[in-house]
Amino acid sequence: MSPAPPAYTSVPVWTREPVVEEPDTAGLVHTVLQVGPDPAAAAVVADWCAVLAAAPPVRVLPHVCADAEEALRALAADLQDARVGHRVLVAGSARDCLAVRAAALRAGLTEEELTVGVTSVAVRDVWCVHCAATASAEVDLEGVVACPGCSRSLLVYPHVSRRSGAHLGFQVDAEQLPEPSGAAR
């Protein structure tokens, strides 16, 4: 992978290029989420489950979810009465992994209790700082996307919220002068 610019501290490496992390076999119970039908994600989950099966007595709670929403529901159900010793593994697109990470952290999980397997990085959520709407689109970091709320063209800033999983977006051409209004000059 190309080295991350040092200023990308809030941008997880696995949102720039696919990365599959190793499962943490020290956990006793593992929620394993496959988000979306991508065969690559299914393969990641299969590899993880094989590793976990070979580890000391562990319980694996596998879920194949159609989309992020379904994954968040499965996660919430598993974490409802979870004990320390629980781990969460999520395989899917970077966007879906960010969404699951945000929900897991909110539920009290720590970063070291989470494992991600990212299979694609094309789609990003971009939060409009001006109107608080969120765009979801195929766009690169520092690319431009239209805000579905206020129609402004948003610059996709390399800054990612751990609470929402979205990138910061702000008006790309805000410094352009407005059309002359006919005032005296």
Binding site: Y8, V129, H159
Partner: peptide, 15 residues
């Protein structure tokens, strides 16, 4: 509002 919840290093990321 966007940065709340971020670490000190993350908040200063873009500089």
């Amino acid at each position: 509002g966007f940065d709340v919840g971020m670490s000190f290093l993350e908040i200063h990321g873009p500089v």
